[in-house]
């Protein structure tokens, strides 16, 4: 593998923004159908909810996102007060993995995405 291929983000390797647009629909359907976590994703404004999830997918694939750890904390604080915990985080991570697999992303790249997602766990859960 050449050095440039290693440095390329997963986001770039799987096709950038159009790939995110496809992934967000798959991911959003999966979390809405999962009774363990669907209430965290219910939103009268589905466009806004989809935009947030797209930003999340862009971030964990190493794409152009400007989320800081502080943003992640602030953005999830109200959910933590509603009981958001490790179980929910694991469920979301599971759907992230399944979504990427469904879209045919190679296992090595899926693993890289999941490790980025894992690194956000403490901030998401406000620990």
């Amino acid at each position: 593998m050449s050095t440039s291929a290693v440095e390329k983000s997963v986001y770039e390797q799987i096709g950038g923004e159009p790939a995110m647009a496809a992934a967000v629909e798959v991911f959003y359907r999966r979390v809405l159908e999962d009774g363990r976590i669907s209430h965290f994703f219910e939103d009268v404004d589905m466009e806004r909810q989809a935009a947030r999830q797209k930003a999340f997918l862009t971030m964990v694939t190493g794409g152009p996102a400007n989320y800081s750890g502080r943003d992640m904390r602030a953005g999830h604080a109200h959910l933590v007060r509603q009981g958001l915990n490790d179980t929910h985080f694991d469920a979301v991570a599971g759907h992230l993995k399944a979504t990427l697999e469904e879209l045919g992303v190679p296992a090595a790249l899926v693993a890289r995405v999941l490790s980025i997602a894992e690194s956000a766990r403490a901030d998401v859960l406000n620990r």
Binding site: E25, Y28, R29, L32, V44, M46, E47, A50
Partner: peptide
């Protein structure tokens, strides 16, 4: 709101909804 969710889950794309 409930129909929109049902149609989305049934495979209709948000951009077409």
């Amino acid at each position: 709101l409930s129909l929109r969710k049902k149609l989305f889950l049934a495979g209709l794309s948000l951009k077409d909804l």
